[in-house]
Amino acid sequence: MSMYAAHLVSMLSIYVVLAASLNLVAGYGGMLSAAHVVLFGVGAYALACLTSILGWPFLIALPISIVAAGSLAFVVGSLCVRLSGDFFLLATLSVHVLLQAVFANWIPVTGGPYGIGGIASPSAFGWSADSSLEKAFFTAAAAGGSLAILGRLLRSPFVRSLQAIRDNAVAAGAVGKDPLRFRRRSFMIAGAFAGLAGALYASNIGYIDPHAFALDEFVFLLAVVVVGGAGDARGPVVGTLVLFLMPEGLRLLPITAAAAANARQVLFGLLLVLAMRVRPQGLVGRYGFN
């Protein structure tokens, strides 16, 4: 397998997990959270700081990064889940801006605009995933395990009631469900998975900077969830595959890299508008943001 293909497998694995976590809050929970990319970033920066700056082993840094992202998600969630749709998006957007500022300006910890480099590859008990192929195996395995756990959660009574709250919070209250409790917990869990994806990302690429966690990434992520299909476990997988591979075609066109990047973003934005207009439940989704 070529280096490029191995790298693609790693990236796909990471983004599927990230998209699946957004699917939990947005697709199953009906909460459009713009803070997701910075939660991904928190996981990445946490791992980077722990392994690169403090020199801690990967196996210890990984769970800590997950907990860091999950804890932040819990705090943000506790504050924000009481807000209705429009305002929830705005609030999470503010969280995004605030954390982006921290990533870009807290130089002693995050390295500021230059980021953190030299992040160690995933390693466990002496073995280290140094080559692209080893990284691909490890990341795919980690992603597979995460999706298995998440999949089980999605079939649980907890998520069933979460969906009920999404569909009609008042009626869910009338059958004894506290909407805030379910939303808070699912937001926290989703944040933890986003952090996991971030940690995998950091150790895969070896270098991170604030640009990787900009709002543009959120549009991509949202498009993945929406186009793939919200509210269905297969949605993130389908969406990631489609939206990763579709713009690859742009590489073949005789345009500059910057132009291709902008064109991708135009594509994702248009897909969101089109999806809501024509097929809000996406390709395999259950929930049409209704």
Binding site: L32, G85, N262, V266, G269, L272, V273, P280, F289
Partner: peptide, 27 residues
């Protein structure tokens, strides 16, 4: 359509327009 669907559309439209500008006029 629900306000959530409108929100997603508006968000997508913003990004599409702004990046179209960047495509045409430079970033």
């Amino acid at each position: 359509a629900s306000p959530l669907a409108v929100l997603v559309s508006s968000f997508g439209a913003y990004f599409a327009v702004v990046h179209l500008i960047a495509l045409v006029a430079g970033s």
